[in-house]
Design a binder for these strands. Structure first.
Lengths: 342, 342
DNA sequence: CTGTGTTTGACTAACGTACGTCAAAAAAAT
DNA sequence: ATTTTTTTGACGTACGTTAGTCAAACACAG
């Protein structure tokens, strides 16, 4: 009825408990033929080691280190706060969470933090990736040291990471285009894009998806080259104001990074009737009120809480070499209109 | 450094292990004063019982029973399939999942199933609720028997359920209105609603939210009284065709239940140029291709996998009397356009 | 056949908790 | 002061696993 134990395996394989243990934990001193007998018995019985009992016995606890960007970006600030909360409850599951903050958009700093994590001998590292050769190298070294790596929010290309947890940013860009295109059907014109930095993969991917759909499905709307605001409100304000003055026929704006306070400032200088339709990322105090006031039309969001939860589940599975349902890492891009604000 | 154990509590409270155990498990024969000493020590140390070790010791396993509607509804079929998968992996967590199917929209049948679950002495019941006095009574009896109850997808009003897992259906209706309203801005006209049955709470709530936003934000669009298709394709086809003939100026359709094959059939009889904008629920083979063909404009969806996962987590927490993060039960309504299909 | 090295089994303690038994200690009743 | 009752402690066993020691059994070379 209930799950088979090592005792059952031993009995079926006709060996002692010790031998089963030797096979199970890869200890030496077992003849190939015997090992085979044990393995067959395990398969036959459908034996799966009881991870909880095993952890109890070896006094194991999982040390997981998060590396996330510092700075004023409110999304990352929320992430940090979220981790605080998780650190408390994760202890119940024998999981110790530590966090280090690194300068944003800085590959070198990130790589250094990864190296420190390796020396601290943690079991796994969860990182918000910045694209750079040093980072990729550091990740390889982590893996070589047997440390699992999961990327969060922003992925690494062709990296050795075990998993990515976050939204599909290309799909997010496509969604933004699908919405903005439909919203702007009434009056053709130009579309402006405000990005943060093209050094982070999520921004690059969002732009890619956005332009794909815009070109294919809404050819009457001309997409302007993106301006890079570095997620800073003042710079976004200035850059967007310039664009809006240069092109008075801008009917839509897609902001795929931070600095939405600046975005709103720039928009507020226009008459309500002439304002473009606006789709932005990340639900914050600013973007929420902007939605309510009708200045923004839609906000795309990723649920940090779910992302952190997923990252932890995946980490544990990676460390235990247990397969993970691929859907666990897939976080859907949430869409907020004025009408479904939580 | 590491978590305090019962031994630590015993030492600090200056009592024996047995006494701590008596307090911890509510056994008799402990003086009030002593119990107080123990409780103080636990608080002081921040002691939390190690649930995994406790379960190991008492050979506990969680028996959780799901009661879901039978029938052709593809959403419920997916739910059943999802449970199959979960049943496998849940065993790793000492969780045994059983499922019983009941006729849809049938309070009496549901109540009977709940009674059977009570007699089977399971630890928790997860149900897709149908609104009825008998069901509410059966839920109360479950609770009285110490069995936890969680509603899934469709909630019960004023029930004794421990939690609801699913999307906010009022918000979903509001979202549908927000989208459909914006999509239909170009040409004012009428909006048709196709429902399944007004006996299930989710449909009622979706309609409510939809009409709220339509009336408030899009007064130029007139919302027709909903037709009830009972989630059956043929009936939906017939009813919608009638509506479209009676009101040639229908510019938008919101289908908040099942039977989307019938919906599509009815729409296909109209010239592409004259077709209304369409927002429906549940991503299926039908709705997916309809999106790709441009017949549907948006599909609202709830992620069954996440819902089942959440329900199980919440169940375990309820049974263990551990607090649950309220965000665990909140499933966001996913919005699919042609552009972000997975 | 002996000696050497390898493989295997039997046994023990531990992880943190649950739960039972029995006797000792303390408190309450006589 | 003695008996009765209640409270407490000491101890053992168990859950399924890890991890160790030690001796017995075995294989194989010389």
């Amino acid at each position: 009825m209930s799950r088979p134990t090592v005792h059952d395996v031993a009995r079926v394989a006709n060996v002692s408990l010790s031998t089963v243990d030797r096979v199970l934990n890869g200890r030496t001193g077992v003849r190939a033929a015997t090992e085979e007998r044990v393995r067959t018995a395990m398969k036959q019985l459908g034996y799966e080691r009881d991870i909880m009992a095993a952890n109890l016995s070896r006094k194991r606890n999982y040390a997981i280190h998060f590396v996330i960007p510092d700075g004023p970006n409110s999304f990352m600030r929320n992430l940090a706060a979220e981790l605080e909360t998780h650190a408390q409850v994760a202890l119940r599951d024998r999981t110790e969470i530590s966090v280090s903050l690194v300068p944003p958009f800085d590959g070198r700093g990130l790589a250094a933090a990864l190296r420190r994590a390796r020396e601290a001998k943690v079991d796994g590292v969860v990182m918000v990736a910045t694209e750079s050769a040093e980072v990729r190298q550091a990740v390889l070294e982590l893996r070589a040291a047997g440390i699992q790596v999961v990327t969060l929010v922003s992925d690494l290309s062709a990296s050795a990471r075990g998993h990515f947890v976050g939204i599909d940013n290309v799909a997010a860009g496509r969604t933004a285009a699908g919405l903005l295109g439909r919203f702007c059907q009434a009056r053709p014109g130009r579309i402006a894009i405000v990005a943060g930095s093209m050094l982070v993969r999520d921004h690059v991917e969002r732009r890619l998806g956005f332009e794909q759909v815009m070109h294919a499905d809404f050819p009457t709307l001309e997409v302007l080259a993106p301006v890079e605001g570095g997620d800073e409100a003042a710079r976004v304000d200035r850059l967007l104001t310039d664009v809006l003055q240069a092109y008075p026929d801008v009917v839509g704006v897609y902001s795929l990074g931070g600095g939405n306070r600046g975005l709103r400032k720039a928009l507020d200088r226009i008459d309500a009737a002439d304002r473009p339709r606006v789709v932005v990322h990340e639900l914050t105090e600013q973007s929420r009120t902007a939605l309510q006031d009708g200045v923004f039309d839609a906000v795309l969001q990723q649920d940090i809480h779910k992302e952190v939860t997923s990252a932890l589940v995946i980490m544990r599975n990676l460390i235990e070499a247990v397969p993970t349902d691929p859907r666990t890492g897939l976080i859907h891009t949430e869409i907020f209109l004025r009408d479904n604000l939580p």
